[in-house]
Design a binder for these strands. Structure first.
Length: 422
RNA sequence: GGAGGGAUGGCAGAGUGGUCGAAUGCGGCGGUCUUGAAAACCGUUGAGGCGCAAGUCUCCGGGGGUUCGAAUCCCUCUCCCUCCGCCA
């Protein structure tokens, strides 16, 4: 969420940001400021009453200590009304605060200046392209290759769990394991600390990174225990430092984590769901950064470059999009998507998304650090996929398929696969 | 799953109804001394809200209650530890 004082001082900017992100409910900014106004005046009232009560209680203590019972009793009698009044106003106060915060939660992060304004994916800017997308007729889509080789079993996945939960078999299981190892090794080499995270999180964590309340429906739930199956490692890893005050020297902190990811993908049935394009469970290596506010812009660029380097090492043609305001999401200030070329489908597939959240997540999580002046300040958080597996697998199968039906293995994966083709 | 014990500032650890946001020690920061450092000594050192400020309020795991007054008493939840049972 945004800082209420920031909104107070930048009302127009926040509104413009909302507009650019395609939010209809711009008046919410005025509403939240109105509520804040009410809340603040209520705080003053309550504090004044509490101060009065405190003073009396203190005086009573003194008198009791001196053995002046009667005088004390006299003051005790006076306190009754004040006490009732305070109780009532405290209730009002917390209600006002709830109302204010609920509005606050509905205000999205303000896009960075460098983000192009636009409504839909058509307005995203192609930031970079790399490699030469193959465009020939003979190349098969990955699901046909996988079916030929009996590498992926979608039907049995459906039987055992449901659509979007495939089995990977033999060399395909090994390919996935190789990719995970490759991605983790690369990240560790770049200074990311490898961490293994829980696959379920509680409600506070889901709120901390912004899945609640904005994207609640994306997650699978375990209601009996109040857990959510993680839709990305971002959630547990970013929440790792929730409610902490880090020291200046600890920053920046870089983590990488492999986890499965679960997404309900409600509402997207029937759309681009062929093969590995869209699954309910998939594997991903995630990168998370906690940085000094001064550095988050630059850190986003290095994060993007790092993710791009992985695709280059795999020799997969890709393009990088700078997402426009309307397509970037609620919590981000700026976001890049990396899309790999799928020659069998002749389309781009998103395999990474690198985002800067500024202090938006940190504020929800109360994740702070002591700055140069010794003051506590919100850290900035970023994350990026490095990378999501299924579409990488799809692209590898399609890009490196041979006319004999085999698939060549990218050189960087050969040590993990112990072979050059499968 | 059963029984018991616990949760206090960066850490350790006192505090069981009254001036306690909290002793003391360690750690951190500043200073004295020193060529420099160490030691010693002195001082300082939690987070947050409202307010131009003076100031004031809140926070001793979370929530609720008793009381003029709660870190301290009661209820409840969560987590941790010990023992028993079960178990990859």
């Amino acid at each position: 969420m945004l800082d209420i004082n920031f909104i107070r001082e930048n009302r127009a900017l926040v509104k413009k940001g909302m507009q650019n992100k395609g939010e209809k409910n711009i008046e919410i900014v005025d509403q939240v400021l109105q509520k804040d106004e009410e809340w603040r005046s209520m705080v003053t009232r309550v504090d004044r009453l509490r101060a009065e009560g405190n003073k009396k209680a203190k005086r009573i203590g003194e008198l009791m200590g001196q053995g002046k019972r009667e005088e004390a009793q006299k003051i005790i009698k006076e306190t009754g009304d004040n006490k009732i009044e305070v109780k009532k106003l405290e209730a009002d106060l917390s209600e006002l605060q709830d109302q204010r915060d609920q509005l606050l939660y509905q205000i999205p992060n303000v896009p960075d200046n460098s983000v192009p304004v636009g409504h839909s994916e058509e307005d995203n800017q192609v930031f970079k392209t790399w490699g030469e997308p193959a465009d020939t007729n003979w190349m098969l889509p990955h699901w046909e290759i996988a079916a030929d080789k009996n590498w992926i079993d979608f039907d049995r996945g459906s039987k055992v769990t449901g659509a979007g939960f495939p089995f990977y078999i033999g060399q395909m299981a090994r390919l996935q394991r190789s990719l995970i190892n490759f991605f983790l090794n690369e990240a560790v080499e770049k200074g990311f600390t490898e961490i293994q995270a829980p696959y379920f999180v509680n409600e506070d964590s889901a709120r901390g990174t912004g899945q609640i309340p904005d994207k609640e429906d994306m997650m699978y739930t375990i209601p009996r225990d109040g857990f959510f199956a993680i839709p990305t490692a971002e959630v547990p890893v970013t929440n790792f430092h929730r409610d902490e005050i880090l020291s200046l020297e600890e920053l920046p902190i870089f983590y990488t984590a492999y986890t499965p990811c679960w997404r309900r993908e409600a509402g997207s049935y029937g759309k681009d769901v062929r093969g590995l394009n869209r699954l309910h469970q998939f594997d991903k290596v995630e990168l998370v950064k906690f940085v000094h506010p001064d550095n988050s812009e630059a850190e986003l660029e290095t994060l993007r470059e790092y993710a791009e380097s992985l695709l280059e090492k795999l020799n997969l043609p890709y393009r990088t999009l700078l997402m426009c305001t309307g397509d970037m999401g609620f919590t981000q200030t700026k976001k890049y998507d990396l899309e790999v070329w799928s020659p069998g489908q002749r389309r781009w597939l998103e395999v990474s998304s690198c985002s800067n959240f500024g202090s938006f997540q940190a504020r929800r999580m109360q994740l702070r650090f002591k700055n140069e002046k010794g003051k506590t300040e919100m850290v900035h958080t970023l994350n990026g996929s490095g990378l999501a597996l299924p579409r990488i697998v799809a692209s590898i199968l399609e890009t490196f398929q041979t006319e004999s039906g085999d698939v060549r293995i990218p050189e960087v994966l050969q040590p993990f696969m112990s072979c050059e083709r499968i």
